[in-house]
């Protein structure tokens, strides 16, 4: 039984060691707050696309209304 627990605890230790293995991430980049610059740029582009889509949507709605009014005449 002791052997069993020994194995289990080694396994758990192993998993923990694996989890803590140093993987290179952009920690410094984030720490300096530069990531917010990227977020801001992408968000502005995204909002620009949304704005254009809304305008297109409104335009085609207007055209549809014109067609409908013509059909009524």
């Amino acid at each position: 039984m002791n052997k069993f627990w020994l194995t289990i605890s080694f396994l758990i230790l192993n998993i923990r060691a694996f989890a803590q293995e140093e993987v290179e991430m952009a920690d410094q980049f984030r720490g300096e707050g530069k990531i917010y610059v990227v977020v801001a740029v992408i968000l502005i582009i995204l909002f620009g696309i949304f704005f254009t889509l809304i305008r297109l949507d409104k335009k085609i709605t207007r055209l549809e209304k014109e067609v409908r009014n013509k059909e009524k005449e």
């Binding site: 990531i35 990227v38 977020v39 992408i42 968000l43 995204l46 949304f50």
Partner: peptide, 9 residues
Amino acid sequence: LTYTVVGGL
């Protein structure tokens, strides 16, 4: 999509 960009990054 706004949430995706903010949360994703």
